[in-house]
Amino acid sequence: MAFVHLLDIDDLPEGPRRVAESGQEQYGQLLNTWRSLFHRPEIFESYLPFLRSVAGPGAVDQEIKDLSALLVAWLNGCRYTVSHRWTGALRGGADPDRLLDVVRGRWDRFDPPLRCALELAREVTSSPPVVAPSRQAGLLSGTVREDVSTHFTEPQIVELTMSISMWNALSRFHRLMQFELDMPAPPGPVDRELLQGKDL
């Protein structure tokens, strides 16, 4: 059961309602994240356009953003976010076996920019709770920092790290809110690991 009551589109004032209607038209439904944010219409009104600007087409290859977002959701152990990122990646044309390789850490066949982005996502997701700023002020190991600077321009670095950071925030928000799935569950083995608890 969700932590907060999920509101409906009729609960929104005009401006946020237009944003919600646009999202509903695009996705064919109102997502539970949105319905929780309806409690704060001014947040929701800016949330969806911001999400589209970060997660949608930009300076970074869409596959890189989609797969790094999936990895972030997986590392956070968030079934709801994994279901969204898995479904979104499939809609974008991703190969299901490739998605499975992402969560299994089988990255050796990926090209260097994608591997680099996944390493970046792993460090940004895993390092903050355990790496003191005095040991590593910028969160990244020297190798990952160098690789990121080699494979991505500065605008791409900003976009990619914002995407990774945003999915970290949303994964944690989703876990706290305990939303029921509103998109298809991840494939059986992946879903079982999320439900049974996996080593993160």
Results as ranks from 00 to 15, higher is better:
T33P: 00
G15T: 05
P16W: 01
I43V: 15
D61Q: 06
R104A: 13
A59N: 12
V54G: 12
N32S: 03
Q26V: 02
L100K: 02
H84V: 01
P57E: 14
S68Q: 05
R104T: 08
D101K: 15
L31W: 09
L37R: 10
W86E: 11
G15M: 07
L100C: 04
L118W: 07
S83W: 05
L31A: 05
L67V: 11
A89N: 05
C116K: 00
D97F: 07
E14I: 06
Q29C: 07
T81I: 01
R104P: 01
D11Q: 10
R91V: 05
Q26C: 05
E42R: 15
G28P: 00
L48M: 14
V60E: 03
R106I: 09
A73S: 08
R109Y: 15
P96D: 14
Y47D: 15
S68M: 03
R17M: 02
L100V: 03
L100S: 03
R109M: 13
T33V: 06
R104M: 03
A59T: 10
A89S: 02
H84R: 06
V102T: 08
E123A: 02
P57W: 00
D95N: 14
R52E: 12
P13H: 06
A20Q: 03
C116V: 12
R115D: 11
P113R: 03
D11L: 09
L67E: 14
N32Y: 02
I64L: 14
L70M: 13
C116D: 04
T81V: 02
K65V: 11
E123H: 03
G28H: 03
I64R: 08
T87Q: 12
V72M: 09
Q26A: 09
F44C: 00
A117K: 01
D111T: 08
G58T: 05
D61C: 05
L99S: 10
P129M: 13
W34E: 04
V130T: 15
E21L: 11
E63D: 11
R91E: 14
A89Q: 02
R79Q: 04
V54Y: 13
S126N: 15
R104K: 06
L75N: 13
E45C: 01
S46E: 09
G88L: 09
L67C: 13
P13V: 11
R17F: 00
D61F: 03
V19P: 00
G88F: 07
A55C: 11
P16M: 08
E45M: 02
I64S: 14
D111F: 12
V72K: 08
E42F: 15
W86N: 15
G15K: 06
V82D: 03
V19T: 09
E123Q: 11
R40C: 07
H39F: 01
L71G: 01
D61S: 05
A121G: 00
T87M: 10
R115T: 00
V60G: 05
Q29T: 01
R122P: 03
P57R: 10
G93K: 09
G88P: 01
R98W: 06
A94T: 10
R40D: 04
T33W: 02
A55F: 00
D95H: 11
V19I: 09
E42P: 05
S68F: 01
L12A: 10
I64V: 15
P16N: 05
L30E: 11
